[in-house]
Write a protein that binds this DNA or RNA. Structure first.
Length: 153
DNA sequence: GCCAACGTTGGC
DNA sequence: GCCAACGTTGGC
C-alpha cells in the first residue's frame, strides 16, 4: 500500500465538497501535468492519499482519502465546455487520467506552517523548494509520521 | 499582487 | 536539440 499526497484548491474541490458527494467519492479530474499523471497511473486500489488544500488562506492537509478506482481517462479532457478541456488529446489515446477517491476521514487542518516546523518531515516532497506537483508519493516513514500527527474529526 | 520555480511552446 | 518567451502554480 502506497501513500500519496494530492493537492486541490478548496475553491474548486474541498474536503467538504468530497464529503458531500454521493458515496463520498469523487474523480480526481483536471491533472494536466505528465509527472503527476504518471503518479495517478501508478496508484493501486486501497492506496491512501493525504488530501491537501492549496492556494487558499490556510494551506495544509485536510483529510485522508482512499483510491477506489484505478486510473482511467479523465472525461474533462474531452469536454469542450470544461476549463480542463484539452483539444490536443487524441480520443483513441487519451492523454490525461483520473482516479476515484473516497473519503476516509476529515482531519483537523494540519497546516503547511506546522509541517515545516518538523525536522523529521524535511524530506517530504511537498516541503521541497519549488515543488508544484499536485500528486506526489509519500515515503512510508513520512506517511507514518503524518498519520500520527493527524487528528481525525 | 508579487515573485520564485518549474513546465510548455515554438522558432531556429 | 537548444533556448527564450511565456504560462502556471502556489506560498506569502
Amino acid at each position: 500500500m502506497t501513500y500519496w499526497l494530492m493537492k486541490s484548491e478548496p475553491s474548486e474541490v474541498s474536503i467538504d465538497t468530497l464529503a458531500g458527494q454521493p458515496g463520498q467519492t469523487i474523480d480526481w479530474f483536471g491533472v494536466r501535468n505528465y509527472l503527476a499523471r504518471n503518479f495517478l497511473r501508478q496508484m493501486k486500489l486501497g492506496d491512501k492519499a493525504f488530501f491537501y488544500h492549496s492556494s487558499c488562506p490556510e494551506p495544509g492537509i485536510a483529510g485522508v482519502v482512499e483510491i477506489v478506482r484505478e486510473a482511467y481517462p479523465d472525461p474533462t479532457q474531452f469536454d469542450f465546455h470544461n476549463p480542463h478541456f484539452d483539444p490536443k488529446s487524441p480520443k483513441d489515446n487519451p492523454r490525461w487520467s483520473t482516479v476515484d477517491v473516497k473519503l476516509v476521514s476529515k482531519v483537523e487542518l494540519l497546516s503547511l506552517a506546522v509541517l515545516r516546523t518538523k525536522p523529521e518531515l524535511a524530506g517530504l516532497r511537498l516541503l521541497q523548494k519549488g515543488n508544484r506537483l499536485s500528486v506526489t508519493p509519500v515515503e512510508p516513514q513520512h506517511a507514518e509520521i503524518l498519520e500520527r500527527m493527524l487528528k481525525r474529526i
